[in-house]
Simulated scan of single mutants.
Amino acid sequence: MRLNYVETGPGDAPVVLLGSSLGADHTMWAPQVDVLAKRFRVIAFDHRGHGASEVPEGPYTIEDLGQDVVELLNTLMIEQASYVGISLGGSVGLWLAQHAPQRIHRLVAICPPSNPAATAQTWTDRAAQVRAEGTQAIADATLGRWFLPEFTETGPVKQMLLDCPAEGYAACCEALSTTNLLPDLKDITAPVLLITAESDASVPPETVVPLASQIPGAHLEVIEHAAHLVTYSHPDVINPLLLAHLA
């Protein structure tokens, strides 16, 4: 499985992988890349079915998405990396910390769905809608969950969502519909920073806050006056947290 990725920063620096939200590609990390690249070799990638990555026919599983990242590390001959993921990317990060612990140095999981299988029908319904009508059918509703009304700089993000392949988006919805990461949280050994947004309607903070007591040694940050795509809307708050945890 070939994942598209973009590398920034010194080639001999510690590696940080950036895993994006459902419906997004690596360009969503524009507010973080230059800051992180001053200290790290930053690899921002597109999940399968997203951006310029390959789009195999679905459904996918969270294991598929996680193994894609392991394969990317193998291809780049990287033994270990830190990982920062938001939303779907955060779920992939938790899976990696559980199932490929030797490959993950530090983990930042931002607004991660930890048990989306609990609302499986929501995900399978959305997959069916996007396969039938494309991502334009869910674009406005998605932006309404990603950002608070006062954040208006959403044009690039909306276009990114519209450009997302319908099959890739739908198949990743199906991956979420079968994902429950809760049972193995206790086995995570990497240092973990959990970030949730106070007004996140997609992955409500009450589903993220309890994870901090289930992951050994995890640190929790709650971002006030923010919705789901907090990395894009609040980089002034998020970037210092990332630098402090990844150092």
Results as ranks from 00 to 15, higher is better:
Ala97Gln: 13
Thr27Trp: 09
Pro112Ile: 04
Ala127His: 09
Thr61Trp: 07
Ala141Glu: 14
Pro191Ser: 12
Ile195Asp: 07
Leu148Trp: 00
Glu133Cys: 10
Asn115Ile: 06
Arg2Thr: 06
Ser177Trp: 04
Leu182Thr: 14
Val16Met: 06
Ile223Val: 15
Ser202Leu: 12
Ala190Thr: 14
Leu148Arg: 12
Pro10Glu: 14
Leu161Ala: 07
Gln98Trp: 03
Ala197Asn: 02
Arg2Asn: 15
Pro235Tyr: 06
Gly19Asn: 04
Ile110Met: 09
Glu133Gly: 03
Val130Asn: 12
Asp64Ile: 11
Cys164Ala: 15
Val92Ile: 15
Trp95Val: 04
Ala197Tyr: 02
Val208Trp: 12
Pro210Cys: 13
Gly9Tyr: 13
Leu211Gln: 07
Gly89Asn: 07
Val130Ser: 07
Gln129Arg: 12
Thr119Leu: 07
Val108Thr: 08
Pro31Gln: 10
Glu133Pro: 02
Gln159Met: 08
Leu185Pro: 00
Ala118Arg: 11
Leu211Trp: 05
Ser21Cys: 14
Thr196Cys: 14
Asp34Gly: 12
Ala227Cys: 11
His47Ile: 02
Ala13Cys: 12
Glu198Gln: 10
His219Ser: 09
Ser53His: 01
Gly90Gln: 09
Leu246Phe: 00
Cys111Pro: 02
Ala227Pro: 14
Glu150His: 13
Gln136Leu: 04
Leu143Asn: 10
Leu194His: 01
Ser21Leu: 02
Ala132Trp: 08
Asp64Trp: 11
Leu36Lys: 09
Val237Gln: 14
Val84Trp: 03
Asp125Tyr: 02
Ala117Ile: 14
Ile188Lys: 07
Leu162Pro: 05
Glu150Arg: 07
Ile86Ser: 10
Leu176Pro: 09
Trp146Ile: 06
Leu185Gln: 08
Leu143Lys: 06
His105Ile: 03
Leu162Lys: 11
Trp123Arg: 06
Thr154His: 02
Ala141Thr: 15
Pro31Ala: 04
Arg2Val: 09
Thr178Ala: 05
Ala13Pro: 15
Ser21Val: 05
Tyr232Ile: 11
Arg41Val: 05
